[in-house]
Amino acid sequence: MLIERCLPRPILSMILMLVWIMLSDVITYGSVIMGAILGIAIPLMTQRFWDAQPVVKKPLRLLRYTLRVMVDILLANLEVAWLIARPWRRPRPAFIEYPLTLKRDFSITLLASTISLTPGTISANLRLDGRSLLIHVLDTDDEQAVIDEIYNRYERPLMEIYE
């Protein structure tokens, strides 16, 4: 009971502590204690402003998803850099409306950020009804292929993790 009262958001507390330790640039008793104090105090003070916490159903899958996105970011950056570095080759840009199956705001935010960070795509607009996402693609021939890839690679894992 007491632990739940003092730590309403354990993950946020842990992240705050880690950020404080990284900010002070040293791992000493002082920085760890100060980080712990901040990690307990800040969630307590800001508790009323937060929405309901998303529940991670499959932590291992979340880890795999994170690793996959990291690798994709690296490859995507190289791909985009290689495309930009050749001005004589005209890219074939496209606007694509991506139909969303995710429902929660948090998972939609994660999906949009992932799309912006990975191969040649930027999420441009979330429609007000929350059912489709407008994506700008840097270079593509086949719009359906892009939609399928995003669905299989990112949206389905996110759905399994959070919904």
Binding site: R90, R92, P93, A94, F95, I96, E97, A112, S113, T114, I115, S116, L117, I122, S123, A124, N125, L134, H136, E143
Partner: peptide, 26 residues
């Protein structure tokens, strides 16, 4: 990604013309 998304929203809001080779009309 957050600033990219916001910038894209601003561009759509101001109706900046996209290149003629762009497929798809949002």
């Amino acid at each position: 990604p957050i600033s990219a998304h916001l910038l894209a929203k601003v561009a759509l809001h101001q109706k900046l013309p996209s290149d003629t080779t762009t497929t798809g009309a949002p």
